[in-house]
């Protein structure tokens, strides 16, 4: 516990905020890695996820890919790519993007898939265009699950960006790696606590946003059970759409 108190003392001492190896620049690095990677990942995942979710095409592939991706050791992937491409911002961002896309994709397409088929059917039957169905029905209803995917992707990226310090990149992980190398346990704890706080703050903010944007009156609509209880007729419709 002494270590924790010492580490907290370090964190809350403004002396350690600015300077070459201080907290704020490393925090900034961490945020830049995270933000940049998530941005690129979103640019990739949103159109792809919307396409898969709306059309149902490539869904099996996406499910298999996202779930088997869990098994890939991200640490090994990171070191491999950095080793081949050299140290720098872009190899790291490339790895982080690769890691962020599957959970984002899963959130988007499964969010759309969870929208009741009968709701979508009726939207089409009263004369919505496919784009209107997507933008006015599927996306608003899928947003909570989409943000769930964003939360997972963000945690993934923050965690992996921490490990990136091992290959000499910046970010809050530097404190941990340096602490371990110098046998300075307090310094390692400083890094660990900072990363935890960062992850927590960002995740809680996203959770807050998630609550905020959940359309009123739909809290129960998004449960899996709701989609299972579809009239048999709709199976026929689905059949026909595929045909």
């Amino acid at each position: 516990m002494d270590f924790i108190i010492q580490a907290l003392g370090y964190i809350f001492d403004p002396v350690n905020y600015l300077g070459e190896n201080a907290i704020l620049p490393r925090l900034a690095d961490h945020l830049i890695y995270t933000g940049l990677s998530l941005f690129i990942a979103l640019v990739v995942a949103i159109p792809l996820g919307l396409f898969i979710g709306h059309t149902g095409r490539g869904k099996n592939f996406a499910v298999a890919a996202t779930s088997s991706f869990r098994a890939v050791p991200t640490f090994g992937l990171l070191l491999f790519i950095v080793l081949l491409n050299g140290l720098g911002l872009w190899p790291l961002v490339a790895v982080l993007v690769i890691l962020a896309v599957p959970p984002l994709l899963a959130g988007i397409y499964s969010g759309i898939q969870a929208v009741s088929r009968s709701t979508i059917y009726s939207a089409r039957a009263i004369g919505m265009t496919e784009f209107q169905i997507l933008s006015k029905v599927e996306v608003p209803l899928a947003i909570p699950l989409m943000l769930g995917g964003l939360r997972n992707a963000t945690l993934q990226v923050i965690a992996t960006a921490t490990i990136a310090a091992y290959v000499g990149l910046g970010g809050l992980g530097r404190f941990i790696i340096e602490g371990l190398a110098l046998h300075n346990f307090v310094l390692a704890l400083v890094g660990a606590l900072l990363v935890m706080m960062l992850a927590l703050v960002i995740d809680l903010s996203l959770a807050g946003i998630q609550k905020l944007v959940t359309p009123p009156g739909v809290a129960t609509v998004l449960t899996r059970k709701a989609t299972d209880k579809q009239p048999k007729i709709l199976a026929k419709i689905a059949q026909e759409r595929e045909g």
Binding site: L155, I176, A192, V195, A199
Partner: peptide, 8 residues
């Protein structure tokens, strides 16, 4: 669950 592994 939000705690990054290395930090934990």
């Amino acid at each position: 669950f939000t705690i990054p592994s290395l930090a934990l």
